[in-house]
Design a protein around this nucleic acid. Structure first.
Lengths: 108, 108
DNA sequence: ACTTACGGTAAGTTTATGCTTACCATTTGG
DNA sequence: CCAAATGGTAAGCATAAACTTACCGTAAGT
């Protein structure tokens, strides 16, 4: 499984997106991440593992607490994936527009 | 369900990513999309629906054939979502680095 | 030392969703 | 006009994966 596959897979789940969004502003300990979420704390732990393997977050242990924070590496991978489509979609659009124009010219 | 939720949901599935990637270079009819994929043609139709609702692709009917092509709108939504984390993750890193430095100075 | 807080993992259950078959509507070519 | 091609939808199934409870190890406070 490639890096981008892991990343898109991870953010494909709504609970994992909720967790990821909680970490947007600051690192949080697992208890604080689970607080307010509609799932149990072990479920959160499992999601954190998936997000970590996707390099979307990383862990910083401090005593008994494990702080998780956003990791830019996973984000970068996703951005690069999307950019390929973004660029090419524009190129396709232009190419098709040109061909259509040629077609129209033929019929003049 | 928000636009970005729909988009991340849609690209969370490997088969849908495979379909999306097939459309990267040029628009394709449904038969051509299904060709080579390890799932049935109706399954492809169902995936196309999800991708379309996520604004990641759009349809162009031409006679009996339905051509699908990449839609930049869904991509834009995902990029903007990720960019918020990208920017803020850097800001957080800097802020924490500064605080850590202050801590260190105190102990000098 | 004992207790409480933190959090990861295992095992089992449940549920969401991806897939198939069957069917139908529309289009096009002979 | 009939046959073949295209593709969307429905119903039902099957499995991946999300969730729970139970358990255990480690850290920190009293």
């Amino acid at each position: 499984m490639s890096a981008s596959e892991r990343a898109f897979n991870a953010l494909g789940d709504p609970t994992r997106r909720a967790i990821f969004e909680k970490l947007r502003h600051r690192p949080l300990a697992v208890v604080d991440i689970a607080d307010g979420l509609p799932v149990s704390r072990p479920a959160v732990s499992q999601h954190l593992k998936v997000l970590r393997e996707a390099k979307l977050i990383n862990i910083k242990t401090s005593g008994a607490k494990n702080f998780y924070e956003v990791d830019r590496e996973g984000i970068l991978v996703m951005r690069e994936y999307l950019d390929k489509f973004w660029d090419e979609a524009l190129a396709n659009f232009k190419r098709i527009a040109e061909n259509t124009e040629k077609e129209n010219n033929k019929h003049e």
